[in-house]
């Protein structure tokens, strides 16, 4: 399988990326790690006339300590994030979940920007960034703007990014002291999550002060299990209390049906995995 012909540029600055996108409009596509885009191009599901490779834009790479949050360049690879000392120290959930993305070869190429800009709610990182209440920074012809995770994911493979915008940074608030866990359920190694659950728990005086739960592959966009989050606030750190709260993890969701699972099974998984993830995050 070979992609259809396209023109190719590999700029070295974000400004050049933005001006190329502005010039070519909908005909242009950003190429990051290529591990979602190239398979689509090989199948001719995506047929861009112009490919803008951001792999040589150094300013899009790396993790920076920005005080209350980490600023992660959109072009930072999964592999770099898993091994980054700042991410491990302040945003352990992101490191743990990213280590479960695909396989080693995929993690060497795939980027956090691509995995979120692609807008696939079956991907692990959208739910994780939602639970961490991250912010996306996009640059377009009019300059930069910030988009909260809750507004970024708009539908299946749809995000708030305009065709002439490039995602430059993902900001993740530091979660020092929070317990965390990512529970990913799939049938075989290297596979996508049938359902995934990202849990964050802040403890205080022996009970749960605050909990956040992000759900992977439970709808067209990453979903927060708000009913369970509310039930967990102030709850005891006992197995019974956690299990009771997580009975509501699938409330209000309409998960997809596919070869791996029907919606009711996915809802069952969301409840069970949420209880496991929260229990582990509560420690």
């Amino acid at each position: 399988m070979i992609p259809a012909s396209f023109d190719y540029v590999a700029p070295t600055s974000v400004d050049e990326v933005v001006s190329t996108l502005a010039e070519h409009g909908d005909d242009a596509k950003v190429l990051a790690g290529g591990h979602s885009l190239l398979p689509l191009m090989k199948l001719r599901f995506a047929v861009p006339a112009m490919v803008v490779d951001i792999g040589r834009v150094e300013e899009l790479r790396g993790v920076r300590d920005a005080g209350d949050h980490l600023a992660i360049g959109a072009g930072t690879t999964h592999h770099e994030i898993v091994h980054d000392p700042l991410v491990r120290q302040h945003c352990g959930l992101l490191a743990e979940a990213t280590s479960m993305v695909g396989d080693a070869q995929v993690r060497h190429r795939g980027t956090i920007g691509g995995a979120t800009a692609h807008g696939d709610s079956a991907g692990d990182l959208p739910a994780v960034v939602s639970a961490l209440e991250g912010t996306f920074v996009a640059q377009g012809p009019g300059g930069r703007r910030e988009i909260a995770a809750a507004d970024f994911f708009q539908g299946y493979l749809e995000t708030a990014l305009a065709a002439d915008e490039v995602l430059v940074e993902v900001r993740i608030p530091k979660h020092d002291g929070w317990g965390f866990a990512y529970e990913k359920f799939n049938r075989v190694a290297q596979a996508w999550a049938i359902v995934g659950v990202a849990a964050l728990v802040r403890r205080e005086n022996g009970s749960v002060a605050e909990a956040r739960i992000g759900l992977t592959n439970m709808g067209a966009v990453p979903v927060r299990a708000t009913a369970s989050e509310e039930a967990l606030a102030g709850a005891d750190r006992t197995e019974d209390a956690i299990r009771a709260a997580c009975q509501h993890a699938a409330d209000g969701t309409s998960p997809p049906a596919d070869l791996s699972a029907q919606p009711d099974y996915r809802q069952h998984l969301a409840r069970v995995l949420s209880a496991r993830a929260v229990a582990r995050a509560t420690g």
């Binding site: 399988m1 290529g34 190239l38 398979p39 490779d53 080693a104 070869q105 995929v106 060497h108 190429r109």
Partner: peptide, 25 residues
């Protein structure tokens, strides 16, 4: 289709699936 790994080579010291990378990259 980037699943089997038969095409794995190293680029700058890291394993990659060469069926899912452009030569120009």
């Amino acid at each position: 289709t980037s699943n089997c790994g038969a095409c794995t080579v190293h680029v700058d010291g890291q394993s990659v699936k060469s069926c899912t990378m452009l030569a120009i990259q």
